[in-house]
């Protein structure tokens, strides 16, 4: 190992400082006389000396000398017992509250990650027109469809407030992720965050009638719940995946997003089940969807058949 490469600070998210040297020695400490100056009050003014040493050229390797033991120096988490130790690529040295990573020229790096289809998505937030248009489209679609389907009292004020609240939630969500991106990647990517948030909101609007169809066809609340939870979990995972993608550098954003989304859905389900189970049902739960837009109420049972099935329900209530 001829070149010594030292990375100061955590690498995830924040860009770390990297020092590279081919010299024979290198001083590390808080004082400005050092080669690597650490602004950490727990580090001694001159705490470490790293130097190349060996009997012949092939044996030449890097070593570390502790110059000030006011605070212990750790190598790979273990405190140094001797004043001198060998240093090689892959080691982590801890001084004060600062971590130093040691690399070599040939330390392997992660394979290049693929960019998304459009490089536009990765650029600085220049073009906000498309996200803004999609955002307005989602809000309009939400407002108009809700009004046409379920507004029975003609209350424009309440309806408008409802739509505006929805828009505010979307903006806040995209904005929050932009802040996360600014902190972790120094780039807010607000346009991109608003774009994915609006796309998912649109998808949600398109998918939402499905649960009514399922309940209408099955007359069964369980099927409806399954569809609602499944669609909700997948859409939220999809949204989180892209939120992570733009705001962080973490690997496997899809898996993380799916895991978190499934976790949240499960907790929601368990919580609602616990609340439901807390005492007697005052109201029975039954399928109440009377119409799925565009579907004729076909396939009705005969009254005799229904009455027979009704009689069977008693057996279930008794086994409670």
């Amino acid at each position: 190992m001829e070149t010594l490469i030292i990375q100061v600070g955590l690498k995830q998210g924040r860009s770390a400082d990297i020092y590279k040297t081919r010299d024979r020695e290198l001083y590390i400490g808080r004082a400005y006389s050092n080669d690597i100056v650490l602004s950490d009050p727990y580090v001694a003014p001159q705490q470490l000396r790293l130097y190349r040493y060996g009997t012949d050229d092939e044996q030449l390797g890097w070593h570390m000398n502790v110059l000030d033991a006011s605070n212990p120096t750790l190598i790979n988490g273990e405190p140094l017992t001797d004043a001198t130790a060998a240093v090689s690529a892959g080691d982590t040295i801890t001084v004060g509250r600062t971590q130093l990573q040691v690399f070599a020229d040939d330390t392997p790096v992660e394979p290049t990650r693929k960019l998304l289809v459009s490089s536009w998505l990765h650029g600085a937030s220049r073009n906000a027109a498309i996200p803004a248009a999609l955002f307005v489209l989602a809000a309009l679609l939400d407002g108009v469809s809700n009004y046409l389907v379920s507004n029975t009292d003609g209350d424009w004020k309440a309806h408008g407030t409802f739509v505006l609240t929805g828009m505010a939630v979307l903006l806040l969500w995209a904005g929050a992720w932009a802040v996360v991106g600014r902190l972790l990647r120094h780039q807010h990517h607000f346009s991109q965050q608003l774009l994915v948030t609006s796309v998912v909101a649109l998808l949600g609007l398109l998918v939402s009638p499905v649960e009514a169809y399922v309940e209408f066809v099955s007359n069964n609340l369980v099927w409806r719940d399954i569809v609602t939870y499944a669609a909700g979990t997948l859409l939220f995972a999809y949204l989180l995946h892209y939120n992570f993608f733009f705001a962080t550098n973490i690997k496997h954003t899809g898996m993380w997003a799916l895991g978190i989304s499934i976790g949240i859905s499960s907790l929601t389900f368990l919580f609602s089940a616990a609340v439901d189970d807390n005492g007697l049902e005052i109201r029975p739960a039954y399928s109440n969807t009377l119409l799925a837009p565009g579907v004729a109420p076909s396939g009705a049972s005969s009254l005799e058949d229904y009455l027979q099935r009704m009689d069977r329900v008693y057996a279930q209530t008794e086994s409670d």
Binding site: N219, N220, L280, E281, R283, P284, A285, Y286, S287, N288, L290, P297, G299, A300, S301, S302, L303, Y306, R309, M310, R312, V313, Y314, Q316, T317, D320
Partner: peptide, 23 residues
Amino acid sequence: NYECITDRVNIAGSRWKVSSCFR
């Protein structure tokens, strides 16, 4: 707790959504 049975039922030539619940 209530147990319900819900279906679309054909009554006198018309379709109704019927839920009956018992506890």
